[in-house]
């Protein structure tokens, strides 16, 4: 369980990024923070990851802070390192033995469909493949909580849809909690168990929507009235918030 209570973050210069943010996220939930740019979504992720500190309020977990995987808007790979070395980074930093790190990293790459690209440098990979390496790196250390900051915004539609499906499957397999940040209503509707709609300046949660997702999600689901209904459900609450 992750609880944010009255979290406020003000940046130097006086910009209030988040004002009195409250939410609770249950273990294994896939939650999306949806909102326009400048609503403090990324700030909220960084606060949860303990990369920055709130001015007031608290973020608490059941027990100690869980192992976290983080995926940025950009692939954020080390250009001088091969794919497998990039994925191995979290393990290297925890001084995992080299052979064990290599096999875990190769396995993580394979889960993201990148077998055979272990020795490639980032510049040799497409945008979608780079993001897959980045996701493999986030999953390699077996996190309990995965934080994604608009990870697929820069990808073409085909790559984004494929990664959406893979992300749902991987999160379910590992039984991890996911907090996903996006400004795309359709993406939020496709991925999430719950959507927290945020308003900009100062950022706060305007609506908390539970979505009833079907057993299987795929390309066909995207064109059903059911999927359109989920999007409408979010859009209506968004309209009410503004």
């Amino acid at each position: 369980m992750i609880r944010a209570g009255g979290v406020t973050k003000t940046f130097a210069g006086g910009t209030i990024a988040l004002d009195n943010l409250d939410f609770t996220i249950a273990p294994g939930e896939f939650v999306t923070l949806l909102g326009p740019s400048g609503c403090g979504k990324s700030t909220a992720l960084r606060l949860i990851a303990n990369l920055i500190q709130p001015n007031s309020g608290t973020i608490t977990f059941d027990g100690p802070a869980p192992a976290i995987g983080f995926v940025f808007q950009e692939p954020t790979l080390m250009p001088w390192a091969r794919a497998i070395e990039n994925v191995r980074l979290p393990l290297d930093l925890q001084s995992v033995p080299h052979a064990q790190g290599n096999s875990s990293a190769a396995q993580a790459l394979a889960r993201l469909g990148l077998s055979g690209f272990e020795q490639s440098y980032p510049r040799e990979l497409s945008g979608g493949m780079k993001m897959r390496v980045s996701l493999a790196r986030a999953l390699v250390a077996r996190p309990k909580l995965l934080l994604l900051d608009e990870p697929f915004a820069a990808l073409d539609e085909a790559a984004r849809f494929a990664l959406n499906d893979d992300l749902i499957a991987l999160a379910k397999q590992d039984g991890i909690t996911v907090i996903f940040v996006t400004h795309s209503l359709a993406e939020a509707a496709y991925l999430s168990d719950r959507v927290l709609v945020m308003t900009p300046r100062p950022g706060k949660v305007a609506a908390d929507i539970a979505l009833a997702q079907p057993a299987t999600r795929n390309a066909a689901w995207r064109v059903t009235p059911g999927f359109a209904a989920l999007q409408a459900q979010i859009a209506l609450s968004q309209g009410g918030a503004e």
């Binding site: 990369l51 980074l89 930093l93």
Partner: peptide, 9 residues
């Protein structure tokens, strides 16, 4: 971002 990632780990 890489710096933040390093801190995270």
């Amino acid at each position: 971002n890489l710096l933040e990632l390093m801190h995270l780990y």
